[in-house]
Design a protein around this nucleic acid. Sequence first.
DNA 1: CGTTCTCTTGAGATCCCTCAACACCTGTGG
DNA 2: CCACAGGTGTTGAGGGATCTCAAGAGAACG
Lengths: 235, 235
Amino acid sequence: MQQVNHPTDSGMHAAVQRLTSDSLGQIKIGHSCSSTSEKTLNAHEHLYLEDNKQTHVYILLEGVVGTYKLLADGRRQIVGFVYPGDMLGLDQSGSYTNSAEALSTCRVRCVPISAIDKLILGEPGFGQTVLRATSQELAETRELLVSLGKKSAMEKLATFLLRISRRMDANGQNPDCINLPMKRAEIGDYLGLTIETVSRNFTKLKGSQIIKIVSNSEVRILDRAALEAVSEGSI
Amino acid sequence: MQQVNHPTDSGMHAAVQRLTSDSLGQIKIGHSCSSTSEKTLNAHEHLYLEDNKQTHVYILLEGVVGTYKLLADGRRQIVGFVYPGDMLGLDQSGSYTNSAEALSTCRVRCVPISAIDKLILGEPGFGQTVLRATSQELAETRELLVSLGKKSAMEKLATFLLRISRRMDANGQNPDCINLPMKRAEIGDYLGLTIETVSRNFTKLKGSQIIKIVSNSEVRILDRAALEAVSEGSI
DNA sequence: CGTTCTCTTGAGATCCCTCAACACCTGTGG
DNA sequence: CCACAGGTGTTGAGGGATCTCAAGAGAACG
């Protein structure tokens, strides 16, 4: 619940940039004819808030962002952890349907919504890139839905670690060395668990020699096969 | 887990049809240059199965369809109830990412994926219609995510009834007279609850005079304000 | 070297699940 | 018309996974 950072148009005709999709379906920056700006956020700063008018679409360049929805009484459900290369704020309703908060220092590229509209209409492949990104996010959200609806706390946590690992892998980092910029509270609000339950299950995985807890923000996978077994409830 | 019904091209050059979006963002059928077919499904028949190669996109004309994902050990998470006017099978990965089963007798229009691709490339507005539909589904999935992650059984059920009610309203039917073609087991697999818990909470709502259970497949909302209060946990 | 934030660990309470029995409805066959 | 069977929904009793509350241990920072 911090103030929102509106991207200031850093340099009046900021580097003219363009979005293209690379082979992995992720987003990269190229050259085109829309004015975009870059912005750096500190941890806990917000990129946008739910129900606010949609002004920009963002591409995360560095850091990790959490997107979440709140209930009237303050309960929070984190609906996604966003990694570099992902797009943010791709709502089609005119307003943001969730809030986005930097979990670590983040660098984002800010694309005015008007530019997005122009790109969708003008550049043939761009609309499909946006569609693919949205569809991909839907698929991931459904995966999370299965975790929340059907899995035990232990299975949820194992599934979560494997997902982050896959994400690290896709970004060219060591998949066994998991970087967790989010706190236990955020993992809990993502998995529908309390901090205590998250912590207890980390401890259990450590006790089974399946993971090693290097620090609060770094976990090593020691036995991936076992972790996969746990994530499917076969233990 | 029934056999899949592949749409037979009913009539070799079936009525030439086109999709357009009406003011509500829903899908209607118009005229264009793609060959589509119509298909009727009985309850329990499948439209497609997860991981099968994507062949068609479907538009539901009549009935209710449930989309679900399975875990290795058979646990099922229903990820959406699909109502007339909705599109089905809009995956961008080449395969279906969930299974779709008719919950009642259903009528669907089947659009070959090749026709969809042509429409996206050829018809300017069509890609945006698909994008808006996908985005809308993402928003609904996130709402469900909040229910599964943060709400109590009672809150989940109340939220569920209100959502169906809104859906009935949008389709021009009496929003207080809720038609539930799905069984308790399916409601349970949608909300991450057991049949017993679903049943007990229906009974509780009935006891509080908030709803009236006309039959297993029809519920009347007697006190909408109270139902909304329950759905937010303010009771 | 405190202060504060975060994480861990424990003990008890609670919500929901599991197991089990029963009730209801529908269709079938005697 | 009744008996019965199968599918579906309801209700009850008990147990277990997770939450709540509480205290203490680490880590980060001035």
